[in-house]
């Protein structure tokens, strides 16, 4: 049975690519969100602490480096140093660090956009910095963070296609393999575009819904 020029085997191959893309994104972005929350909060500290400077350095560095380079360095670079690293481990690490930097910036901006009056009212009650963040600032900041954070996530989902450069057979690389077998580039790439759309569009909808609900 064929779907146009695509055989069941081709479709299965693309499906596997989809699952690998999802697996990479869920793990990498999940870890990235955690990194971003931690470093974003550390960077938002108004006092010049060591942790703030480390967070700033991390965020600025990884925002300035192309994701593709992170994949290449994370995999081939580490291997060239003589260490054994799994392909999946390397690309997940690259995506986590990259996502963490962008989300860190979103978190920091969100925290800083809550008015100074909220801090002053909280500390005037005798609340500590951490309690103020937890009970007053973050509940308000999260609302501000959601749209840009989802924008970052969507960008990273699409950027995960660059993991193909180190031979991780995610959706785009799977597609190229199928094209080599079928000579149907438009059909295959069209299908892949649809799949990305199906992954990313619900995220936009989620963003809008959350924005309204919160």
């Amino acid at each position: 049975m064929v779907f146009g020029k695509l055989s069941i085997a081709d479709i299965n191959y693309l499906w596997r690519g989809t699952l690998l893309t999802l697996r990479l994104c869920l793990t990498g972005i999940g870890l990235g969100l955690i990194l971003g929350a931690i470093f974003g909060i550390l960077r938002a500290n108004p006092r010049k602490t060591l942790t703030k400077m480390i967070a700033a350095a991390y965020i600025e560095f990884f925002r300035a480096v192309p994701l593709m380079l992170l994949f290449v360095v994370g995999y081939f670079g580490i291997i060239s140093l003589g260490y054994n690293v799994s392909r999946f481990g390397a690309v997940v690490a690259a995506i986590s660090l990259y996502t963490g930097a962008y989300i860190g910036q979103v978190v920091r901006t969100g925290i800083e956009s809550v008015g100074r009056g909220q801090w002053e009212a909280s500390v005037s009650l005798g609340m500590s910095y951490v309690d103020t963040l937890r009970y007053v600032i973050l509940p308000q900041a999260v609302k501000i963070m959601i749209p840009p954070a989802i924008g970052v996530v969507i960008g990273v989902v699409k950027g995960s296609s660059l993991a193909s450069v180190v031979g991780y057979v995610e959706l785009v690389l799977a597609g190229r393999h199928v094209i080599q077998r079928t000579y149907a580039p438009l059909l295959v790439m069209g299908t892949i575009a649809m799949i990305y759309f199906v992954i990313c569009y619900p995220l936009s909808i989620l963003s809008k819904n959350l924005e309204r609900k919160l």
């Binding site: 008015g115 009056g117 009212a121 500390v123 005798g126």
Partner: peptide, 24 residues
């Protein structure tokens, strides 16, 4: 001193020009 300051502030009310209630 942060610990002393928290204790002190808990004992001093402060009412702001723009209220600064917690909107959430």
């Amino acid at each position: 001193d942060r610990a002393k300051l928290r204790k002190l502030r808990a004992n001093i009310g402060f009412v702001f020009q723009h209220f600064n209630l917690f909107p959430h």
